[in-house]
């Protein structure tokens, strides 16, 4: 086997993935010279290190991730947004109104109310405090139409596919526009029929994310 080839296998927590001098990457721990998986998923041993691509788990925010969330709480200075994680995203007034934001002058309700859904970007997050989010950027902001489908956040890379191949496949075959939130929420825009088709495709990916022939399965589902 070549040194730069990728070796894959299924693992559960506690499984020894490989022994020897390898670099531990995500979802693994090193004990002695053993690399042990900490999650259920697919272990990948490559030149860059050993990692496990998880098949389940809650979303952990990362800086610059695009997320889709719902406003659950608001006060005079900020909105709290449920982003499908164990922390609420904080959208500050100044992130919406600009630096000149004044809680007495600007009406928070004119922008977002409780229950509003929005596409946002994670500005900063370091696990010691709640993630800050922002809506400045192309494609970000309040959601005015569409439907949100949910999937386990670790399966989002399979919905995107290699260089966006899977999104493209779904969009071209269903005429439904997808906006992907890294937190496992996917915004679907299109006709009722298109949304239904796209939703079933996402469900299929969710149930079969560990399989290699996902493309063929999605094609056969959509073309039915």
């Amino acid at each position: 086997m070549k040194t730069n080839s990728i070796e894959r296998k299924y693992v559960i927590p506690g499984d020894v993935i490989i022994q020897g001098d390898h670099k531990p990457s995500t979802n693994v721990i090193k004990q002695g010279n053993k690399i042990i998986s900490t999650k259920i998923g697919m272990a990948e041993i490559s030149y860059n290190g050993v990692k496990v691509i998880p098949l389940n788990g809650t979303y952990i925010p990362r800086t610059d991730d695009v997320v889709i969330g719902k406003v659950v709480e608001m006060n005079g200075f900020a909105w709290e947004v449920d982003i499908n994680s164990w922390f609420f995203g904080i959208l500050t007034g100044s992130a919406v109104f600009g630096k000149q934001f004044s809680s007495s002058r600007d009406s928070m309700r004119s922008q977002f109310n409780k229950g509003d859904c929005l596409v946002a970007k994670i500005l900063s997050f370091d696990r010691t405090r709640d993630p800050l989010i922002s809506i400045s950027g192309p494609g970000l902001g309040k959601i005015k139409e569409g439907e949100i489908a949910y999937i386990t956040s670790s399966k989002i890379p399979r919905v995107i596919g290699k260089k966006g191949a899977m999104i493209k496949l779904i969009e071209e075959n269903t005429n439904c526009h997808l906006t992907i939130g890294q937190n496992g929420a996917i915004l679907l825009k299109g006709t009722d029929d298109a949304r239904l088709k796209a939703k079933s495709a996402i469900e299929l990916i969710g149930n079969n994310a560990h399989l290699s022939d996902l493309n063929d399965r999605v094609i056969s589902l959509i073309s039915k």
Partner: peptide, 11 residues
């Protein structure tokens, strides 16, 4: 716990 996707050293 493993089914919930929580990081564990072992079962």
């Amino acid at each position: 716990l493993a089914d919930a996707g929580i990081n564990m050293r072992d079962l």
